[in-house]
Amino acid sequence: MNIIVCVKQVPDTMDVKIDPVTKNLIREGIEGVINPFDKNAIEEAVKIKDEYGGKVTAISMGPPQFKESLKEALAMGVDEAILISDRAFAGADTLATSYVLAEAIKKIGNYDLIFCGKHAVDADTGQVGPEIAERLGIPQITFVKSLKLENDAVVAERLLEDAVEKVTVKLPAVITTTKELNEPRYPSPIKIMKAARKEIPIWSASELNADPEQIGLKGSPTQVVDIFTPEKTTEVEMIQGTAEEIANTLFEKLREKKVL
């Protein structure tokens, strides 16, 4: 079983700040971590490898510091890690990102399963996984909460808003993972020692023979026109009355605001 896991490094904070001029995320002083759902993807890939044998390769497109997350993936049990990094990739939207990742996946070749987190917690699009499947022309199962392999097929349960859908597809396939799928392991100290010393290969645009029209800003039809932190307002309204009246008023107000 050859498995590829797509990993993204995201800022380790609940309080994302945006530079008002450049409209980019302010990354200074904020540590990068593996996107939480990608950790579920890594866990599932390593679990399958432990059971069925094979090899897990983690890939990530991003600046050189994304190596940290790839090393953590290695310390969690991934066998190989490749950083896909080139200034030419900068400014990529999901379409350009999925193009580059799909090209890298083709270059690795001979894959049975591709795992992605269901979405990244920084940009929240959830598009890259499905786009990779489209570009490779293979089936996909998104929002997976449980998964098992049966011969040359994968049977998965999808976590939908009000239902669970059970789907079977033939391998190879793309799976996007939810946090319900598993409990990601901690990196192991022994593997940390090996991962820290491992050289992570970097693939550039030329190594992928990437079409310059399809990468970076040029390959990105999505233009971010503006991005801002919504202003937080707090309005406090004191509800008066007897306990019962207060409860009723509160209930009505919450219903009006569609909280309930």
């Binding site: 090393k71 953590e72 310390a75 901690y186 990196p187 100290p189 940390i192 020692m193 991962a195 820290a196």
Partner: peptide
Amino acid sequence: EQKMIRKM
């Protein structure tokens, strides 16, 4: 490796 051990 020291940073990775600390994080873990």
